[in-house]
Design a protein around this nucleic acid. Structure first.
Length: 307
DNA sequence: GAGCCGTGGTG
DNA sequence: TCACCAAGGCT
């Protein structure tokens, strides 16, 4: 399998800037933050602009968190921007401005969990670490375990399996991790896997079993009418303009009449927020959450991005 | 472990 | 149309 999958990878791998040998560990780290729950195609332009503007951790650390959140744009989960900023500050203050190479030190950074720490150690520093992301879990579930999809949460058995499957050689292990992840992203996809293109289809337990259906029905992510949706709409308003937005125009009735001084984009975003028809109480709760999380800041003239 | 946290593409 | 899904992390 090592040979089949890595050979396939050599031929099919996407040409991504954070995979270029010239990419700095910081570039790899930024990509890993942005790629958390976010597809590659949406990350690419934001990553390029980000690296252009803040080529080193210290460059980002010198900025306000609000600027980080604004540059994050519409990638989603804007708290990731806060965590990336906080990690940059920590790297600047405690690691001499360089992304640490040790898995343990990486894990201690804000926003860096088991996956991201392993990914940075492997892809930026060539370590032999076990990387387990959603793609790798799915490939293992199918090829080895014969199931359509992995369970909802990562199990100790999966971790053990991933360790056992990894090549002993350091350099090969790096490519293996990269290759299995890519296989899951391009061929062994969740919805409509392209088994005819798979380099290990003849060894796949799931194919051999006749591609049985998933045992667990996926749990849908509620969206319409949730606080998340309202939070997102408020964030869109704050990102759209630099001028503070009076809190009542965010949480109050539509006809509050406080549009003066706001950029046209901000007004459009404000219309979208009101268009949701969310109750005032919910909008206030959402705004409080954003303030508490540090995604928004309250000033004398209204609410804006922090900093 | 479950719930929460954004956004846009897609089958 | 609409639920599912995407290189997770934190509480």
């Amino acid at each position: 399998m090592h040979r089949a999958v890595t050979d396939w990878f050599d031929d099919a791998a996407r040409d991504l800037p954070w995979r270029d040998p010239s990419c700095s560990p910081w570039g790899v780290m930024v990509s890993e933050f942005m790629l958390q729950q976010t597809p590659v195609v949406r990350v690419l332009p934001v990553w390029r602009a980000w690296m252009q503007r803040w080529p080193r951790p210290a460059d980002l650390a010198a900025e306000s968190t609000g600027e980080a959140v604004r540059a994050w744009g519409r990638l989603g989960y804007p708290r990731r921007a806060l965590r990336l900023h906080a990690a940059a500050v920590e790297i600047t203050e405690h690691h001499g401005g360089r992304v640490p190479a040790a898995h343990e030190l990486l894990l201690a950074l804000p926003g860096v969990g088991a996956y991201t720490a392993a990914a940075i150690a492997v892809f930026a520093f060539g370590d032999r670490q076990t990387v387990v992301d959603t793609n790798i879990r799915r490939v293992h579930a199918r090829v080895v375990t014969g199931r359509a999809l992995p369970s909802r949460s990562l199990t100790a058995a999966e971790l053990r399996l991933a360790e056992e499957l990894m090549p002993a050689d350091d350099a090969l292990a790096v490519r293996w991790n990269q290759a299995v992840m890519e296989l899951g992203a391009l061929v062994c996809t969740a919805r409509s896997p392209r088994c005819e293109q798979c380099p290990v289809r003849d060894a796949c337990a799931w194919v051999a079993a006749g591609r049985p259906e998933p045992v667990e029905a996926p749990r849908g992510q509620a969206w319409h009418g949730t606080d998340r949706q309202v939070r997102g709409a408020i964030m869109a308003v704050l990102r759209a303009g630099s001028a503070p937005v009076p809190a009542p125009s965010l949480t109050g009735p539509v006809d509050v009449g406080t549009g003066a001084g706001l950029a046209p984009e901000a007004l459009r975003a404000l219309d979208a927020l009101h268009g949701l028809g969310a109750p005032e109480e919910q909008r206030r709760r959402a705004l409080d959450g954003l303030l508490r999380d540090g995604l928004a800041a309250a000033g004398p003239s209204g609410v804006s991005l922090p900093g």
